[in-house]
Design a protein around this nucleic acid. Structure first.
Lengths: 212, 212, 212, 212
DNA sequence: TATGAATGAGACTTCATTCAT
DNA sequence: TATGAATGAAGTCTCATTCAT
């Protein structure tokens, strides 16, 4: 006799995930400002006041999206690249995990990479995340070098790591726009670029401007 | 007789540049949606209706910014990387011009790279620009290879070029956040990464996943 | 216990009628363009966003007014002029209902007759309504004629009907500007004009231009 | 060597007519509010400040249109219906002139009949014009009656005249929307309706409500 | 005379957010 | 808990009108 179907009154945690799903979809497609709370609530199948009650302000909602997707991504990568593996293996598994994440969570990636970047309140947090990643990658390179008995100035290391991360993100973003592409193959390509390219660089050879 | 004949009533071309300057500043700092036409008009020292009369809708204004800054950047790079130079020289000069542009036009760069990316109506155009750039870079790499009597599958070439462009953009964006850094030095670092790294890669050596 | 349970938070249907009332008043007095949404909302005792939420755009609001008033008028007339009555009785009751409507809903009439006519998006719909009315009147005349064993060319019938409707509308509009006048008396006058005038006309006599 | 083509610097009177032409077109198509001074100036091939200098405010410009078109119409009718003709001839010639005017000056008619009616500042003036016309028509009917040795209460006369004018305007407006229709034929039809219909009415016969 | 440049004012519309049931 | 009803605030855009050349 109850007109309330079984799926109402879900436990709070489930509802929150539904809302975050809807929010990530909306923010990914339309950006922080253009996405509307109305739209998100409707897509989540819930009323607007509930969204406010559970997840707070629009800004807080966006941050929650960033956190969930960022954590998912970082944990996926961290779980793959166990610290006791050799450096190249860690890099390779990390890349595979990264492209796998992008392929499986396009919207999440887009929120992280395209949408959060331009919005002042959030860009800082993202930059911090990237910095930590760059450190990790720099650490891997350093490990590899020491294993070969070589050493590189820390600054150079950081710049190279930064460039590798940038290149990787860029291919990841390309992947997000080409759902038909194979994440694993993309990972292989990036691994080639990263590992062989970096190896050469770190061997100490340097290109020099030719005067002027 | 005075070369600044009055304060108001400037000719159209001048006013348009003032408006575009203000718009690029605003869009760079606050993004497309958060920037307000009021704000832009006030910063340009003019009333809102003039902005609409000269440059149209907010969307058209944003496109005008994109065009001006994009053209500036492309022309700076094209002027530097004359097509009759050897490939490495072209790449080097192109990079120097690119980082020079970013250092000199931070706001323009940020609008192009950070703000346009997430907004659906504009992202496409930007992606096209990047594609053309990737082609050019791939062409340089190809030239260099042929000069050495080697050859590479076109797909690989494109991916490598794409990664190089991504890495370069990423460093450029880093530069935009570090005004104290030296564009020329950043260019040198990127040239190292690009040239030596690519050289190795293109020599035919390949890293391969180790099973699993 | 009170039948006016509170002041705010009325159910949707009630609020919509309040808004339409206010809108008809405003549009009637000032016309589509000069009436402002602010004004309408304030007169309805509600905030502007509610108007948009319930009734949409200004244009849609105007159409809603047109529909409500048009329907009211047509239904009043249709209810009075039951199709099983003899033609003259139908005409008479219809006229009485029409002038009754104009007297009781001046604002509605004015929106329909004076304000919608000049505005391109709405004029068409009104013209269609009038056409249908003309058909009905032509039908009445035809009935009356056949009852007398006479017949008239359809074109003539339509023109006469059109003129009758025009004359009626014109007197209706005059009534709208003379609230002290008696709708019933106006109806009687129009019935005289219509019935006796038409009778003569339809008897087959024709005035003819005298040369030139 | 003069770059000023011959047709600039027209005499004031000519320019004013061009502006009024453009204004009537614009007001007819879009109504008083929706028509913009920009549009009018451009259509007249002149700059906006000139419009203000010559014809004043938008409101004054509209009044000027009303005057010109109203005068044209009245004069056309007056010239045709010379007061020394017999009443039926006057009516007939007047109608022909009226429908001729509508056919030849659609835009002017529309401004007078459809657009001015709803705008408070102008409706009054129009109503006055119509009143005068009604008087004239009532006079004609009176003349005709007296010529037959009969007499009618003035009120009835006025109402009948009002209805005739309304019917005529209505057919005129129909003509404005059917440019392919023949003004002369429409005039003949209206003359039939007016003359024969009125004749009957004025003979003293009256339709009476049948109780209820 | 003639006009490009300029603006104050105000319109429509939308949104994030909250109240009262 | 859950939501329909409600709004303050702000943003985009247009227009009639005037100045300064």
């Amino acid at each position: 006799m109850s007109s309330t179907p079984a799926f109402r009154r879900l436990p709070r945690a489930v509802r929150e995930q539904q809302m975050l799903d809807a929010a990530v979809r909306a923010f990914s497609r339309r950006g922080f400002h253009a996405a509307s709370m109305d739209e998100i609530a409707e897509d989540a199948g819930i009323s607007k006041p509930m969204v406010y009650a559970y997840l707070g302000t629009k800004e807080e909602l966006f941050v929650a999206c960033l956190h969930r997707e960022g954590t998912r991504m970082v944990e996926a990568i961290a779980a793959a690249a166990a610290p006791d593996l050799p450096a190249d293996e860690r890099l390779w598994r990390g890349l595979r995990a990264f492209f796998g994440f992008v392929g499986a969570h396009r919207d999440g990636w887009i929120v992280l990479y395209r949408q959060a970047r331009g919005e002042q309140p959030f860009a800082g947090e993202l930059a911090t995340m990237r910095s930590r990643l760059v450190e990790v990658v720099a650490g891997m390179l350093d490990d590899a070098l020491r294993a070969q008995g070589r050493e590189v100035r820390e600054t150079d290391l950081e710049v190279i790591a930064y460039a590798l991360v940038g290149a990787t993100e860029s291919l990841g973003d390309w992947l997000a726009d080409h759902p038909e592409a194979d994440p694993a193959k993309t990972a292989t390509r990036m691994m080639n670029i990263a590992w062989l390219g970096a190896d050469q660089l770190l061997r100490g050879e340097t290109w020099r401007p030719t005067g002027e």
